[in-house]
Amino acid sequence: MTLSIQQGWAAGVLSCCGIAVGTLCHISAAAFGLSLLLLSSELIFNLIQYAGAFFLCFLGLKTMLSPPGIATGKQSASMKEPVAVFRDAFVINLLNPKTTLFFTAFLPQFISPQQGNVTTQVFILGGLVILLGAASDLTYVFIAVTVGERLQAAAGFRQSRRYFIGAVYIGIGLTTVLSGVFSR
C-alpha cells in the first residue's frame, strides 16, 4: 500500500507480484515438507521473524533518509526501481514465518491422500490462495492509489510523504517484533 500511495499503479502491481512469488516459495516449502523443519525450531522461526522485522525497519529508515521527492510528479531519487519494488515485496513475504505457519497449519486440513498426489493438491490449493491473495492485494492497491492521488495533491503531504511511508514500514516492523515477543 505504501508503494502504491507513493509511486502509483505499477509499483503496487509489482509489489503484489513479489508477494505472490514469495507465497509460492512458502507453498513449495509446505508441499515438500520443508516448512515442518522451520516450524520445528523455535530459534529458526524467531530468527526469520526478526530478520523480516529488521528488513521492514531498514526500509522505513531508508525511506525517511532519502532525499525529498520532486513535487512535479516526475520520478524522484526516492522512487524505487521496478526490480527493487518486486525484490523488497518478495523478501518481506519470504521472511514472514507466519506465512509458513499458515500454509503448514491450514492446507493439510483440505488435503486428502485418497484423492491423489498430496504435493499436487498442496500446489493447487496454494495456487488458489495466491489468486485470492492477489485479488485482495490488488484491491488494496486500487484503494491506496486513489488515496495517494488525493494526498499527492496536498503540498504538505508531498513534503512529508517519505516520513509517513517510512513510519508505516517501521510501525509494521516493530509490530512484528512485539507480536513475537508477546506471543510467548
Rank of each mutant, 00 (worst) to 15 (best):
V83S: 11
L65Y: 12
Q114W: 03
S41D: 00
T175Q: 09
I92L: 12
L36R: 14
V85Q: 08
S179M: 10
T63S: 05
Q75G: 02
F102A: 13
I111R: 07
G33F: 03
G60R: 01
T175V: 07
A71V: 04
F123W: 15
D88W: 02
S66G: 13
L59W: 04
L101G: 08
R184F: 11
P67T: 08
Y140W: 14
I5A: 11
L59N: 11
G126Y: 06
G133D: 04
A167W: 03
Q7A: 11
T175H: 10
G173R: 06
S179K: 13
A31Q: 10
S112I: 00
V13F: 13
Q7P: 07
I92P: 02
F86P: 06
N46M: 12
G148V: 10
C16E: 06
A10Q: 13
V181G: 00
Q7C: 04
K62H: 11
L3M: 12
F54N: 01
W9D: 02
T104N: 13
Y169R: 07
I44A: 14
L38Q: 01
A84M: 13
I165E: 13
N96M: 14
I130G: 03
S35N: 15
T139W: 09
F55R: 05
L65S: 11
G18S: 03
S112E: 09
L151H: 02
P68K: 14
G12F: 08
I92D: 02
E149A: 06
P67A: 14
F142I: 03
I130N: 02
S66Y: 05
S35M: 01
Q114Y: 04
S35E: 07
S41Q: 01
G8C: 07
A11I: 10
N96F: 07
G156L: 09
A144P: 05
F157Y: 15
G148W: 04
I143C: 12
N117T: 03
Q75L: 12
G33C: 07
R87N: 11
T100E: 00
E81P: 00
S136L: 13
E149T: 02
S15G: 11
I124E: 01
G69R: 14
L125S: 08
A153Q: 15
F110M: 04
A153M: 07
Q49V: 10
A20N: 04
S160M: 10
G171K: 06
L128E: 04
T23W: 15
G69T: 09
I92G: 03
A154V: 12
K98G: 12
Y163R: 09
L34E: 06
F110S: 08
R184W: 10
Y140T: 02
G73K: 05
R184I: 12
A29D: 02
F123Y: 15
V91H: 01
L138W: 05
A20Y: 07
I44N: 00
I124W: 08
